[in-house]
Nucleic acid binder design. Structure first.
Length: 280
DNA sequence: CACCATGTTCCTTG
DNA sequence: CCAAGGAACATGGT
């Protein structure tokens, strides 16, 4: 369940568990998840190496390995729509849609992804086009104005453009616009400085709060099914469903004004908003 | 069966 | 060349 906050929570979970561990073997059950790399390339680069750190860029997980001469020391993960990563005992049964397993000494680091939109690769070219992180000093109201200049595309669709701000996805785009009191159909190029300032603040506060919420959910990654997931009503997430102000709340009252939340489709993605609060 | 789903990339159209 | 829109990818849940 991966937008920036979910990936950040996963990184914080994995980092202390992976750092210092050595990769004994690599098993690839779905080679397409490595594209454009091959299983042998991945194994060649990873086997025998030790995790030095785990970090995040936008929705990508960055796995840094201790240097070994001049060879590559970074591989990246992306969860796509349905990807999950977790550690489990090496002799436990693998989940049905396991794509890649990195065998450590006593554990298996598992990447599973039913839809296989995710990636685990050595290639890092997709990182080069990403815009600033939400908390980057480069991201300012003026940066937003400049990026929106001459653009007739709606602000909701524009917020999903990873070159403007990196890490916002379909759920938090709706949440950010609601807090900003900006209509999702507002053409991005006609937003004024005040609105871009609201947007900038909401981007930071919504994502910060989502990360905080994620770190408070009792996760159980080892059991595979429940960890990390902000949806669903299973035991791991019960009591945490009320995290969204508008997303998924079609027909329910706006928490600010009581108006019924509406849903529209933009670029084939659902947008939820309050028609009373979001007149801007 | 129909429709929906957290994302990214590529192709086509204007 | 650029902006914008849509399809493709692939599977599961309702």
């Amino acid at each position: 369940m991966p937008e920036l906050p979910e990936v950040e929570v996963l990184v914080r979970h994995l980092a202390p568990r992976l750092v210092g561990k050595r990769i004994e073997g690599v098993r690839v059950l779905h080679p397409k998840l490595l594209r454009p790399n091959t299983p042998s390339e991945l194994a060649q680069a990873l086997v025998g190496r030790v995790f030095e750190s785990v970090s995040r860029r936008a929705k990508y997980l960055l796995f840094h390995l201790t240097p070994d001469g001049s060879s590559k020391c970074l591989f990246v993960g992306h969860l796509g729509m349905t990807g999950r990563m977790f550690l489990q005992p090496r002799d436990s049964q693998l989940p049905r849609h396991t794509g890649v397993i990195l065998d450590l000494s006593n554990e298996a680091f598992v990447f599973e992804d039913p839809r296989r939109f995710g990636r685990l690769q050595l290639d890092t070219t997709s990182l080069s086009t990403l815009g600033p992180e939400p908390w980057d000093d480069k991201l300012t109201p003026k940066w937003l104005i400049d990026r929106f200049l001459g653009c007739r595309q709606s602000i909701k669709v524009k917020l999903l453009d990873q070159t403007v701000v990196a890490g916002i996805g379909n759920i938090y785009a709706s949440e950010i616009l609601h807090r900003s009191r900006i209509s999702p159909v507002h053409p991005s190029g006609t937003l004024n400085l005040h609105q871009c300032s609201q947007l900038h603040q909401s981007i930071q506060s919504i994502l910060t709060e989502a990360i905080l919420t994620g770190t408070r959910i009792p996760l159980d990654f080892a059991r595979g099914i429940e960890g990390l997931f902000y949806f669903g009503t299973d035991s791991a997430t019960t009591g945490y469903e009320e995290r969204f102000s508008v997303y998924g709340r079609l027909g329910m009252p706006c928490l600010q004004c009581g108006t019924s939340i509406q849903k529209i489709v933009q670029s084939a993605r659902s947008t939820y908003y309050c028609p009373t609060c979001q007149l801007g």
